[in-house]
Nucleic acid binder design. Sequence first.
DNA 1: ATCCTCGTTCGCGAGACGGGAATGACGGCC
DNA 2: GGCCGTCATTCCCGTCTCGCGAACGAGGAT
Lengths: 257, 257
Amino acid sequence: MASTPDERTGRRIRSVEIAFTILDAIRANEATSVTELADELGHSKSTIHSHLRTLESQEIIVRQDDGYRLSLQLLDMANDVREQVANYEVIVDEVDKLASETGEIAHFGLEEHGKVAYLYKAMGTQAVETVSRPGGKQPMYSTSLGKAILAFLPADRRREILDHVSFAPKTPKTITDPERFADELDVITDQGYAIDDEENIEGLRCVAAPVKNGNTVLGAVSVSGPVSRSTDEVLHGELAESVQRTANVIELNTKFS
Amino acid sequence: MASTPDERTGRRIRSVEIAFTILDAIRANEATSVTELADELGHSKSTIHSHLRTLESQEIIVRQDDGYRLSLQLLDMANDVREQVANYEVIVDEVDKLASETGEIAHFGLEEHGKVAYLYKAMGTQAVETVSRPGGKQPMYSTSLGKAILAFLPADRRREILDHVSFAPKTPKTITDPERFADELDVITDQGYAIDDEENIEGLRCVAAPVKNGNTVLGAVSVSGPVSRSTDEVLHGELAESVQRTANVIELNTKFS
DNA sequence: ATCCTCGTTCGCGAGACGGGAATGACGGCC
DNA sequence: GGCCGTCATTCCCGTCTCGCGAACGAGGAT
């Protein structure tokens, strides 16, 4: 069966899935009363009710006025998440530096479930607004972070991720042809950094470099700037250099876990 | 039955409870393999296995090397939590100010499940180390935040919380006598702020003031300093003033929701 | 090559869980 | 003030899920 126990197999627990559906709804503030949730999610009121009681007794949600909201325990869990990611402090320091040196937005991201998840974000002084936030996810094929990670992942893992991805265009410039994408990855592997040329968000260009620990890719660092400031020269020149240098510093400070 | 649908009644969903038990274990890094989790939690390997698959498909946990860790989605959920709490930005600003004015640690906390949960923490320049972190919980009866909140809660809600609390001494100075505690609350209601005189952590004294919106208590702000610097005069004087002023500013900036 | 360990799968029986309807508590409206 | 309408909560019932134990298979180590 090869060593890849595809995450889409195996038995699921229905009740747990329902519980997380409810959590998602509460999270999105879509509906906060038993009846609304029941309608919204297509379950009986009694079902929703038992689940809410369970989540409440686990102190995951909290009753407020009329309705429910997520509890602060989630903040605590977020703390644990950061502790479980290797080198969080180093990453924060270096990404901060990168942002202030370049003046733009700097990100650190890593691969999760076939997408890039942002771990940390720092804003430089002239940084443009973006909607990204820590914990947010973006496709791998349209972001510099994703491409940088993919390019340095072992071939089998890369294949596995790409096999489950459908290339949907996020902008007119998004690469949607698997062949062309494979070529792009080759280029990235060679030059050591990845470019996103308005492929994920119009008007935004990014450069990213992978952060490795030996052979394994831990994630990637990127800088994002508006097209106006980000000429080919700047992108491939000073910015590419900066992200690579930052990536290196993080690598050097990596305590092998 | 009055309008208080005690959170300890109602049906619970066993599978969901198991799922969260597993999450807790992963959170604590106690055990990260199927077999270890099965031993630790007293369930069969197959049970743990289905649950892990479920949590993974919900993108709550992630496989890493050998074992599992929490996914970055939790960071995203933490963002939502902050958005769901009224006035988060205002609170951050004002608590930051409070910390830099006083030089000490400043906290904002609110009541959840009969305990105080820290929403935000800011460190002043001479702030002492503490173990508190956002999302962390402390008893209400031994903290200034908790006492400030309790003192201004409607009588029935206060009763409800106190009925389910067992006064365990956290330090020699912790108030463990319900009678004395009730008196203390009366004093607090009168003077408008609460003191924690090494009742929660030895060597640490705190002052807190409630943040209200009309009649409802949203939470409380506090300042904590070492006994050395925190004489009665300072505590009841400038610090009490500062926390009350901060609480007021937050109240004034409260958009009624 | 053989054992041991670990993850995964399978089949079964108990009982948990989801549904629907009844109950009860509010609150608004006439 | 009485009467609905709405909503949360509870109860019971029948089904199908879920948790268990055992068997299987894949590595690793000796």
